[in-house]
């Protein structure tokens, strides 16, 4: 059986797939790749079904050795990539020879790289998924140096294209489309205008659960407590400090602070590539509004 020997991991490398569904009523969140579009693309490049597990590499730093020849692709953050010390291209189908070493360096921009391996990372699934949920602890533990990860048998499909022309994750300021609500009515009129008019900086207190944002506080119209309710990735939840948290893949299943607006799902992928220090600007998409 083909195996990957992990040599180094950088700040955080986890096994991810498209996550767990159908168990939120017993408190199990979806988890899975934080930038699902990039994750899917990596799988498509190597001919894997989209749900096969791969590696999510936060801020680079991964190196691994293959015992058998591998077919791989790296997408997402713009990480310098080498195979046996030769520079290799991202968003492309790469071959790593038996005994070869693949390294993924620190990205120049973007936060999360996705490495798909033809055959998928074949660790034992937990509740039908191999995703590491960093909030609940479900799934395999984060990848560590010295780990040996099994690779599954190759799927019947073959890679169809050699490269995918995709833009790099943006540097600098990001403009993200949100739909106001569901609890925009818990805030003052100025709060929504502030959210849509001021930039919010990504703070270092950001991980797979969510990104704490720094900017002008968003004021509530009244006090009172919201009974906990279900959450989604992309929700901008506002704790009493008034500074929003943008929920990502490992967000809690329910939360008790009001959500002022929600990012479009495609924008969650882009937000997941933002790094501490980058500024986010939110632009409203005309929501349908609450229908009574």
């Amino acid at each position: 059986m083909t195996e990957l020997r992990i040599l180094t991991t950088g700040p955080l490398t986890t096994v991810q797939d498209l996550g767990r569904t159908g168990a939120a009523h017993i408190g199990v969140g979806v988890s899975g790749a934080a930038d699902r579009g990039s994750f899917r693309l990596a799988n498509r490049l190597v001919g894997n079904p989209e749900e096969y597990a791969g590696l999510e590499i936060t801020l680079g730093g991964l190196s691994l050795r293959a015992d058998h020849p591998l077919t791989v692709a790296l997408t997402g953050a713009d990480c310098p990539l080498t195979v046996n010390d030769c520079a290799a291209a991202p968003n492309a189908v790469l071959r790593v020879p038996a005994g070869g070493v693949l390294t993924v360096g620190t990205p120049s921009h973007g936060a999360r790289g996705y490495l798909a391996i033809r055959g998928g990372v074949d660790v034992d699934p937990v509740l039908d998924s191999r995703a590491t949920d960093t909030l609940s602890g479900l799934g395999p533990p984060p990848v560590r140096p010295g780990d040996v990860l099994p690779v599954g048998p190759p799927p019947p499909e073959f890679p169809l294209v050699d490269t995918a022309p995709v833009p790099s994750p943006p540097e600098g300021d990001l403009v993200l489309t949100v739909t106001p609500g569901p609890r925009a009515d818990w805030f003052t009129g100025e709060a929504l205008a502030t959210l849509l008019g001021a930039g919010y900086r990504v703070t270092p207190e950001s991980d797979r659960v969510g990104m704490r944002l720094d900017g002008p506080p968003l004021e509530r119209r009244h006090g009172g407590e919201l009974p906990s309710e279900g959450m989604v990735a992309g929700a901008l939840q506002v704790p009493p400090s008034g500074r929003p948290t943008l929920f990502l893949a490992d967000h809690p299943v329910t939360g008790g602070y009001p959500v002022i607006a929600v990012l479009r799902s495609a924008e969650v992928d882009r937000a997941a590539q933002a790094r501490p220090g980058q500024r986010l600007w939110f632009r409203a998409e005309r929501g349908r509004g609450p229908l009574s």
Binding site: G22, A23, A24, H25, V30, P227, E229, G230, V232, R288
Partner: peptide, 22 residues
Amino acid sequence: VNLVPAARTLLLQLDPRHADPE
């Protein structure tokens, strides 16, 4: 993809690629 009952709400989590919210 998920139903999340809570004290006063029921959340239907959607897969945006396959859901027609309306």
